[in-house]
Design a protein around this nucleic acid. Structure first.
Length: 984
RNA sequence: GCGUGGGUAGCCAAGCCCGGUCAAAGGCGAGGGACUCAAGAUCCCUUCCCGAAGGGGUUCCCAGGUUCGAAUCCUGGCCCACGCACCA
């Protein structure tokens, strides 16, 4: 019903004039960074007289320069740190560097091997060719990149206490001791266990192959195949591997490759026929296998073997499609559901020569028909046949289409399929369930066995095709333990989550996690204290190190690799005392040869800072590190030291595109800093977007931001022509200012920085622009002062350098980055002033609409504010609506009871109906929008403003003023909140 | 398939949790105007469709539903992105 045009909201940009260009932000940034450092602004020490705030981000991995993705996760935490400091907290924000694990080793090796791809990665980071060979040494990475990361972060002007920085791995002895302490506790608490574990394995290197060491097959994992055993007449078994045991009821024949060679091997007490590679896989998977003889595939063709489950003899037929690298080289044939099998069967049935070659009986072979075993919605009885026909697959050689067909049939069949009546006891069961049931039954009857294979083809960097090995002494962290999970859920429930949706996600992840292999044979890291064959894996050694930061300043002695002698001798007792208060400071200290006071101080640092108030990261770490961090805190620390808050952001997009190394659009922090001043990058990141959506770093925004920041410095520090006396509009501005502060604080607290900027920067600037327009370019002096102060402080967490410059040019005391954040003065919030201004704006918009539609070039215009009787009716209606009892009859009764109303009862009724419709469903809090603004006075006062805006004389009348000028009787239309307009 | 986050005007993107002030902020792009010798920058206005009076029409992925009222809540569907691990 209402389509009332709203005033174009006051919008403006700060002026970007040529003079603004004279302000160069870079030297300003350098100057203030030096000043902060000199004053130790960011060095944080426990101070029991002040409340604390402790922020961390997961330390970045040191296999390259840090890019905008890390910068974003970091800065989102840092904005909060700076905000909290302005709220009066003693803020700790440390930063360390992660060197544990495989990637550095792998990358260094690849440089040593002069691999072009790896070489190129370094070159693209801007490392000159002559320096790249140095990276063949892993140590070089660890020397270069942590320093570089620090330099980059400092370039961004981050508020980090660098006295607490360090690197991981045994290169830094106190941290190494800390990790050992952690694992002792995990083991004592029974959180660590040992078990068998399948891994992707390179048979040539005799080592597991992590994702980073793969030429092909990133993300592939071990998956379990069923080995089906087909007894031959002589008691030996043909052994076929399958991932679809549920299809056994549709078996029609077996496939072997006549040109391949197979072996007979003794496996346990049985003799199996399979290929040689499969025997090696089985040995690596803990089976005893002895190869006894070789047999040609061609010699197997034509024999009959008894198929498991259906217990009936089926023929062995020649198939050329078999991948000898996968499974056993022997394949069971289910043409109904496997496109490969159907096509091979069809090829053979049509090929007389081939049949003759292997002396196969043509009528028998041609009689083989697919057996329908699974019904899948959307498919006929024989999906394998159906898809071959649909895709027009010609023969076994059509590999690409066959792979596609296989994947499609398998997926839909697995999730939606149901077994047919001919599947014995499994009839009517869903494939998803039947798969495991059938497998179990066959295994228990000795008709099947199992073997692992990679879930997809994996090729090691040494060009060798990977297999799966089962290691039998793998150490695990028992994240699968339900009791442990329950406590994690408890922690999640009591935490602050930013955004809130993170809570649900973490709960899900917690349930989904199972035991985590926490050790490796290779890679950099701490040696597992009780089993020196193993190195602690890099996600497992970095779950509770936020505790280490609280004491790191003493242990590191100002170096990333500690050279502090006593810190090289730390034992469990030291950490037990510092983190648990167990034992005595004196004992601990004397053993280390330090003053007991120092050890006591470290204990105080820990108890003061812990727990972490906010840990922020990109969303990729949610399902591992962020969850592990909770699990381990729960295992080791008492409840009061569990993390209090988590923040997560999406993946950074650059100019709307995904950042990825392979696509070459990665932006390193140092590159960004060459392009723009730090404050511009910071503001751009803050504005990139909140929540779990991927934030978009908008380069156009950055360009505009630079100019705007320069201009803000100029604006905030120049002389303005002002007035001392107060106008009505000042109240409006102060109201908006304070509401803005309120909204901005809320957004900051929720880490919604884009929203904070919208309120606290863009909207505030627009409001100021409107205010200046309404003040005829002479703002009131106090309003100006407060605007500058609030604006500068609100920007300070985002653009600290610029804010500091303004603060000091304007004679501020101390540093703005440590000054008090603006408070909202609630008493200055004035809804009536804002409502009045809204009325002015909407009226202006209405006038413009009329001018636009009619095309009138106005010579004169008039406004008529509502007659007093309408105001009365409206008041009565509002009162009734507030009480929730707005009924027409009551409204009429009350309205007519007022003096003079009965004379115009008909008009009153008409208007009352209109008002009633309007207000009946309005929210109570919106009713005060109309609250007793003296419209006539307001428009009178602002008539000259409207005249100036519209370039025409504007008269203001009360609609019930008998002397009004009203040539086309427009005044009747006037209602409260909406004056009538006449344009001539 | 499971999990998570999404689908809003030419594009980007708010709003959705808490239904009504929503033809829906802001930005970009586009058009017009002011300033200027001119250009740039800046400022003002316009930018779903129709309209010579502030109005009307049709919209927020699709189809239903709840409601006096739905971009917003519910149900079903379609589509997109990310993750589904042993490793940063």
């Amino acid at each position: 019903m209402r389509t009332r045009a709203r005033a174009a909201p006051p919008r403006t940009r700060t002026k970007i004039g040529p003079r603004a260009r004279e302000i160069d932000l870079r030297p300003i940034e350098v100057k203030w960074r030096a000043a902060w450092e000199k004053a130790n602004v960011n060095v944080a020490r426990a101070d029991p007289t002040r409340p604390k705030w402790y922020t961390t981000v997961p330390y970045p991995y040191m296999n390259g320069y840090q890019h905008l993705g890390f910068a974003t996760s970091f800065l989102r935490a840092e904005f909060q740190s700076r905000y909290r400091r302005m709220l009066g907290y003693n803020v700790l924000h440390p930063e360390a560097f992660h060197c544990t694990g495989l990637p550095i080793l792998g990358a260094a090796k690849r440089i040593a091997e002069k691999e072009p791809k790896q070489w190129d990665i370094l070159r693209k980071m801007g490392i000159p060719d002559r320096d790249i060979p140095k990276f063949a040494d892993p140590m070089h990475w660890i020397e270069v990149f942590p320093e570089a990361a620090m330099e980059d972060l400092k370039g961004l002007g981050v508020a980090v206490d660098w006295t607490r920085s360090f690197i991981t791995t045994p290169l830094n002895p106190p941290y190494d001791a800390f990790v050992r302490w952690q694992f002792h506790h995990l083991r004592d608490g029974d959180f660590v266990k040992i078990d068998k574990h399948p891994v992707i394995w390179c048979p040539k290197d005799q080592a597991p192959i992590g994702d980073h060491d793969r030429l092909e097959g990133e993300g592939e994992t071990p998956s379990e195949y069923t080995l089906l055993k087909f007894p031959l007449a002589d008691g030996r078994f043909l052994v076929a591997a399958t991932i679809r045991p549920e299809t056994v009821y549709g078996q029609t024949n077996l496939w072997v490759d006549p040109d391949a060679s197979y072996v007979v091997a003794k496996v346990g007490e049985e003799r199996w026929v399979l290929n040689e590679l499969a025997t090696r896989k089985l040995s690596e998977q803990g089976r005893t296998v002895v190869v006894e003889s070789t047999v040609r595939g061609a010699d197997l063709v034509g024999k009959d073997a008894v198929a498991p489950a259906i217990n009936r003899a089926i023929p062995v037929l020649p198939g050329s499609f078999i991948d000898q690298g996968r499974g056993t080289g022997i394949v069971t044939s289910v043409p109904s559901d496997a496109p490969d099998d159907f096509v091979a069967l069809r090829d053979l049935q049509r090929d007389d020569a081939l049949l003759a070659k292997y002396d196969l009986d043509p009528p028998r072979i041609r009689a083989i028909k697919p057996v329908s075993i699974i019904r899948t919605p959307g498919w006929g009885p024989l999906p394998g046949v159906e898809i071959v026909e649909r895709l027009g697959i010609r023969n076994q050689g059509d590999r690409e289409k066959l792979e596609q067909a296989k994947a499609e049939v398998y997926r839909t069949g697995f999730y939606r399929g149901v077994l047919n009546e001919n599947c014995g006891p499994y009839a009517g069961m869903r494939v998803e369930v039947a798969k495991d049931e059938i497998r179990k039954e066959l295994m228990s009857k000795g008709q099947a066995d199992s073997m692992y294979e990679p879930s997809g083809e994996v090729v090691c960097r040494c060009m060798t095709r990977a297999i799966v090995k089962v290691v039998d002494n793998q150490w695990f962290l028992g994240y699968g333990d339900p009791a442990w999970k329950a406590k994690v859920h408890e922690a999640i429930a009591s935490m602050e989550m930013h955004p809130e949706g993170l809570r649900k996600w973490l709960d899900y992840v917690t349930d989904w996690l199972h035991d985590w292999p926490c050790t490796h044979h290779r890679g950099l890291g701490t040696i597992l204290p009780w089993d020196s064959d193993w190195v602690i894996e890099s996600l497992s050694d970095s779950t509770i190190y936020m505790a280490y930061y609280t004491i790191a300043h003493a242990l590191q002695g100002g170096a990333l690799r500690s050279q502090v002698p006593w810190a090289g001798r730390l034992d469990d007792a030291f950490f037990d005392y510092v983190f648990f208060g167990k034992g005595g400071a004196k004992t601990v200290a004397s053993r280390l040869g330090v003053d007991a006071k120092l050890v006591e101080e470290l204990r105080q640092e820990f108890t003061y800072w812990y727990p972490v108030d906010l840990r922020n990261t990109a969303k990729d770490l949610v399902q591992n590190h962020m969850a592990f961090c909770l699990f381990n805190h729960i295992a080791i620390f008492p409840k009061e030291h569990w993390p209090r808050g988590y923040g997560v952001n999406g993946y950074v997009r650059l100019a709307g595109r995904k950042m990825s190394k392979s696509r070459g659009n990665v932006w390193y922090i140092r590159e960004a800093l060459r392009e723009w001043p730090a404050d511009v990058i910071r503001l751009t990141v803050a504005n990139a977007g909140d929540g779990l959506d991927d934030p978009n770093v908008d380069l156009d925004f950055a360009a505009v931001a630079e100019a705007r920041l320069q201009d803000w410095v100029r604006f905030a520090t120049k002389k303005h022509s002002t007035r001392r006396n107060t106008h009505g509009i000042d109240g409006w501005f102060l109201s908006v200012l304070n509401r803005t502060v309120q909204a901005t604080r809320n957004a900051m607290e929720d880490m919604n920085y884009k929203i904070a900027l919208r309120h606290g920067y863009f909207d505030l600037q627009s409001a100021w622009s409107w205010y200046v327009r309404r003040s005829e370019n002479r703002p009131q002096v106090e309003c100006l002062r407060r605007f500058i102060e609030v604006q500068t402080k609100v920007l300070a967490p985002f653009t600290p350098h610029m804010a500091e410059e303004i603060w000091h040019r304007n004679g501020g005391a101390g540093f703005v980055v440590a000054a008090a954040y603006p408070d909202a003065k609630v008493e200055e919030i004035n809804p009536r002033a804002e409502a009045a201004e809204g009325l002015l704006q909407s009226t202006l918009a209405d006038i413009r609409e009329i001018l636009k539609v009619t095309g009138i070039a106005p010579k004169r215009m008039a406004l008529y504010t509502a007659p007093s009787w309408k105001v009365s009716v409206h008041e009565v209606a509002r009162a009734l609506a507030t009480q929730g009892a707005l009924a027409m009859n009551v409204l009429m009764e009350k309205a007519l009871a007022q003096p003079g109303m009965r004379d115009r009862a008909k008009e009153v009724a008409a208007y009352a109906k209109q008002v009633a419709d309007e207000l009946k469903h309005a929210r109570v809090e919106h009713l005060d929008r109309f609250d007793s603004v003296d419209e006539f006075a307001m428009f009178r006062e602002n008539a000259h403003f409207l005249a100036k805006e519209l370039g025409v004389k504007v008269d203001v009348f009360r609609a019930d003023d008998p002397r009004r000028w009203d040539p086309s009787t427009k005044a009747d239309r006037a209602v409260p909140g909406r004056p009538a307009i006449y344009v001539e």
